[in-house]
Amino acid sequence: MRSNDDFLSKKIVPGVEGDEIEVDPIRDYYCDAVPQVSREYKRAYPSIIDRFKNWARSESIWILAYGSGCGAIEMRPLMTPKYDAYQYGIQWRPTPRQANLLMVSGYLSLKTLRIVIRAYEQMPSPKYVMGLGSCTINGGMYYDSYNTINRLDYYLPVDVYVAGCMPRPESLLDGLELLKKLIREGKGHGADIYAEKFEWYKANQKKILKSWNMPDYSW
């Protein structure tokens, strides 16, 4: 097992031309600043500019194309001629830096949970999480598994759950419409809730990911 100290300690890496490069993983690979609550979240009423921004955010949802479970199969039909989610302003991006919506498609084992957390933290806020299928709601058919989580909302702030095992593409579209409505109403504050209850989320994550070898906030 890679221990925490080994992975994050300073080390000297041989370069291509025989030179030596000093690597400080915490400074070079990660940004360890704690997330902050946005100004929009603190406002009692959204201003007109906020409303306009929210409208733009709701009409241009970029999904991180990452499939953690069987639900990834149900996402593909959304790109095909039959359902074609592009016409509703929904697009897929290959990198978390450019995505706004993290679709957790199905069960999360501990290994995938670690990756999902890292991907979520790398996304620029405002960012949203959608949980697909009963696996993310209460564990689904893996409710008694020794390495599959039961409730996603203890580890990431979930905006919308879509029930089913697995939900069909139609219900995914329905869930996306609901998400758009929430964002338009100014309720898409997942990132701010994550920042507000950051310590609680981190404690839950670290409770099950016992060999935590990243800084606490790894964007």
């Binding site: 097992m1 890679r2 564990g139 409710y143 598994s145 020794y146 390495n147 989580i149 409730r151 016992k210």
Partner: peptide
Amino acid sequence: DEGWDGPPPYRRDFDTLKYSEETYFPR
């Protein structure tokens, strides 16, 4: 490699349901 500290999980006397309920916040 996520830091397992329980008994070997495939042994039949290991109660996965109980472990899951204790660890993973059942709804």
